[in-house]
């Protein structure tokens, strides 16, 4: 192995590694041989199952392609069409609304939940219960809530009736449909997200808390001064992952509102899917996907910059 030779180089500290300090001139290749070895299996998976299909998709966005007959090159026609497509702009707006509600509620609730789990109990039962919704497939969760929130038969509306309140058409009211879909997904992903954050909390050395406690810091202060800063790399990752996942909401809409009422829930991914598989307009769908990709990349880049995800404040601990 080459590792012996690398020993001579200074071991990379977290700081150096993340800030990309230029390597010593004598070792321009750094750990490259080892790195290639370590990255290779994942790289094969990446190239074959992600990169190649993505490039192919990019090419298809420049064609008229109905899936079943060969694509025909049309230049930027699909992108030009997109500019004047009111359903596309509507889809962006609706998706943004969904993401804001879903991420907002989910992030606050899951941080709260993770901290509670971390500070209050080590019970496996509690953690298991919280993760339960994630054990159920998305489509079933959507169907279950669709059934429970039914205007006429749903148990939730029966409960509202019983409390003397007006019934609510959760999925049928164009103002409520998106918040409803967003909250259903928050319900499913809350435990999952909380568990990711919980894993981050576990990485914070208890000694940090002990020191803070000795200084007489309250739980509240510790949360803002100790927990959140130390959690930053993990939080950054969780935010990037959940935001990207949130933009790609599809199943829940497909089995409940199917984009209705009157396009109120026609989120971008549902629109893309409908175009590609129901309307055989794959070229145009690919163009929409490419735009979505650029938007997501932009959002993720911004998030990473803002949260300085590459760094950890743990280095001094």
């Amino acid at each position: 192995m080459t590792s012996e030779t690398v020993n001579a180089a200074a071991p990379p500290t977290v700081e150096a590694a993340s800030r990309g300090t230029p390597p010593p001139p004598t070792r321009r290749l750094g750990d490259l041989p080892v790195a290639v070895l370590f990255v290779l299996p994942a790289a094969i998976g990446f190239v074959v199952f992600y990169l190649w299909p993505a490039l192919r998709g990019l090419y298809l966005s420049l064609t008229k392609y109905n899936v079943l007959t060969p694509p025909r090159f049309v230049g930027t026609a699909n992108y030009e069409r997109l500019l004047g497509d009111h359903l596309f702009w509507n889809a962006l707006k609706v998706t943004a609304e969904y993401v804001v509600i879903n991420i907002g509620t989910q992030t606050v609730a899951s941080v709260l939940l993770a901290v509670l789990l971390h500070r209050l109990t080590r019970s496996l039962l509690v953690r298991g219960v919280v993760l339960l919704p994630f054990l159920v497939a998305n489509v079933v969760v959507a169907l279950l809530w669709f059934w429970m929130l039914d205007y006429q038969l749903g148990v939730v509306n029966h409960a509202l009736d019983w409390l003397g309140l007006e019934r609510v058409a959760f999925f049928g009211d164009s103002d409520l449909a998106i918040p409803t879909v967003a909250l259903v997904n928050t319900w499913r992903h809350l435990g999952y997200t909380a568990l990711l954050i919980y894993a981050g909390l576990q990485m914070i050395p208890p000694s940090v808390y002990e020191a803070a406690a000795l200084d007489g810091a309250s739980e509240w202060r510790m949360f803002w001064r100790v927990t959140l800063p130390l959690l930053r790399p993990v939080m950054a990752m969780v935010m990037v992952l959940t935001v990207i996942g949130s933009f790609q909401v599809f199943d829940t809409v497909a089995v409940t509102t199917a984009g209705g009422p009157i396009n109120a829930t026609r989120v971008i991914y549902f629109y893309i899917y409908d175009l590609a598989f129901n309307r055989f307009n794959f070229g145009y769908a690919a163009a929409l996907s490419s735009v979505l990709f650029v938007i997501l990349a932009g959002v993720a880049y911004l998030q990473l910059r803002l949260t300085r995800a590459g760094e950890s404040d743990l280095k001094g601990a």
Binding site: F46, V240, L241, Y273, A285, L292, A300
Partner: peptide, 8 residues
Amino acid sequence: ALMVPPIF
């Protein structure tokens, strides 16, 4: 790759 839509 996170952002590559599964439809691709």
